[in-house]
Design a protein around this nucleic acid. Structure first.
Lengths: 363, 363
DNA sequence: TTGTAAGCGTTATCAA
DNA sequence: TTGATAACGCTTACAA
């Protein structure tokens, strides 16, 4: 069917070895030989078989990307960052979506990446010791997005600092009842991100001399709907929060919707701060903690490529900066009535735009 | 390093052929042999080398997915649909993000998927005749999301019907000046979707006896920011539209933001309808045309797997249904002042919630 | 049911 | 600079 290197060699009147060298642009090939090979290959519209090449050389030309979700904004952005770097280096990208626990377990049982990839990038998955060992045994460079996982390369943000900044922002605005919508899920895998952000929330409260109240923490599972439900739950408290820190923008969006539905103004009645600087955050005028998402992906890819190129650098741990982006959904704390009840009949339909003008949280 | 099939065979006291058969669960292997192989493999923590297996069998165990963007909501959803089906069938997913024109051209020049994949799924990319031929020459099943591209399998929605429905919805509400925010971009590749939707818009207007005005069409490039700019442009017209059809929800989000910034109420001053039923559309109370996104991906994957399984069915063309989802951003046409000017001073800060209550377009 | 051995299409080593 | 040829690790006729 398709031409092989033998066909090309025959047509060029050379050996397969020379053809192979010529095609890969290796030195020690005469110009004339190179030209003849080029032409023969073209005439036969020959392409090397990556499979055969891989088997022979031991290199696969592919990088595996292992992640827990493909259809969430954050991961799409990261993958796009990885892809751009990989593609620029003629590397393939093999996607492994670990989805639920079953798929996750199966992955580590069967290790489908074994001998399939030259390097591995793991996104935000908590790795057990066994799993870490399993990945090490692959004997390929591994880069991890998230908490430091020796002996792998690491890229991350400082979730503790970032979350503390979010909470302090609310504290500085005079808030004392500060709720948390956490991403921590029932998933038996304990994703580190929500835990770190939640712990930072608690610590920051304590540092501000605010007593911790477990009822002010609601689960949002990193989803819009779940974020909305979490906000609703917080509002049923006898003393509802005057401000809420959502561990992701998507949950914050849900929270905003609930506020709107309950006829509560944001930020007059309840302030909301998110996390990520999702592309829609700007649109919703959401105050948030911005992190470089695409860049984290690109960096991960660059790290494994460098390791692949034979750099004998020790795996590093890179912490990328986050920053507070103040928009219209956070404001000074109210000092009068409880937020559960609209302060005046008119406010129910006002939506807060009168007071805040252009800084209202709605598009 | 890693154990090979020969090691397993030796340990089990069998031939490599038997080991291979046993490991793949083929018939004609005695129970005792199967058990010995299992145990030997386990003890050596042996995994087959997919590469070697591929070279030998001619199957790659991977499906290529070619798409123009990874970081857009729509494509993330489709990929997630594909992935779930593929993963359930132990197939790998090789991602090819064609991004800009240069990468696109390079892809078809070098055909990196050649012999790398057992099947190919192409998402919404307009294929030239040469490109179609190139893909055919791969001699693997190809499934295309988008316009029918014989001789490939096809999955799509009826963009013309869907877009016409959107426009008719506006017409039925009494609108006569109906703007279009089209996704058609400067990309030399002529993506079919925006063109189909735009043509349907024109046809639907004509059918309603409304004269076509090219000034009512603005480019939104399928982006939020660009959608916002397009809306702003439409509002500068001497006679601005009272309703706008955005060819994607993301552009509609941008349009809503512009309306908000210009102190125009939605839908009182301008109605907006989007396309996709993006997960945020609900949140923004955006009227839109819903299409099954994840399902289209899953279906594409199932089609190529079926073809791979040896079904000799003729490639089909499946059209999935869309439906109008009426929410709060569309309303009856105003009959008094031009929308460019707020009808009353108070309206500028009212945001329309007074009149529409829960149906206001904001969360 | 099991084993032998010929591929699969390259790359890489070594000698020429 | 070029060429023979042995891997690479598996699958699959075909034979036993």
């Amino acid at each position: 069917m398709a031409a092989t290197i033998i066909d090309v060699a025959r047509r060029a009147g050379l050996s397969t070895a020379t053809v192979s060298r010529a095609l890969r642009g290796l030195p020690n090939v005469s110009e004339s030989a190179r030209a003849r090979v080029q032409q023969a290959a073209e005439e036969l519209s020959y392409t090397v078989s990556p499979i055969a090449s891989q088997l022979s050389s031991g290199r696969t030309g592919a990088v595996g990307v292992v992640l827990p979700f493909v259809n969430r904004w954050f991961f799409g952005q990261v993958v796009s960052g990885i892809d751009s770097v990989l593609r620029a280096n003629d590397m393939d990208l093999l996607l492994y979506n670990l989805g639920d626990t079953r798929v996750h377990e199966r992955f580590f049982e069967r290790m489908p990446v074994r001998r399939r990839v030259d390097a591995l990038i793991v996104l935000t998955l908590p790795l057990s010791e066994d799993e870490t060992r399993a990945l090490s045994s692959l004997a390929v460079p591994v880069a991890v997005l998230g908490e430091p996982t020796p002996p792998f390369w690491n890229v991350r943000i400082d979730n503790s600092v970032a979350a503390a900044t979010a909470v302090r922002h609310l504290v500085n605005l005079g808030h004392r009842r500060i709720g948390l919508i956490t991403g921590a899920a029932h998933d038996p895998r304990r994703f580190a991100t929500p835990i770190l952000r939640r712990d930072a929330y608690r610590t920051a409260l304590e540092a501000a001399g605010i007593r911790y109240d477990p009822r002010l923490e609601a689960m949002g599972h990193f989803g819009i709907e779940e974020g909305a439900a979490a906000m609703a739950q917080l509002l049923t408290l006898p003393e509802p929060p005057t401000a809420v820190f959502a561990e992701s923008d998507e949950m914050a969006f849900g929270a905003l919707r609930t506020l709107r539905r309950m006829r509560l103004r944001c930020p007059e009645d309840v302030s909301v701060i998110g996390f990520d600087d999702h592309e829609t955050a700007h649109l919703m005028d959401l105050t948030t903690i911005a992190q470089p998402v695409v860049e984290q992906g690109a960096l991960l890819a660059r790290l494994v490529l460098k390791a692949l190129a034979g750099s004998h650098e020790e795996p590093s741990d890179t912490v990328l900066p986050t920053r507070l982006v103040v928009r219209g959904t956070t404001g000074v704390a109210r000092r009068d009535a409880a937020p559960g009840v609209p302060p005046s009949p008119g406010a129910a339909t006002d939506n807060g735009t009168g007071a805040r003008g252009a800084r209202s949280p709605v598009p």
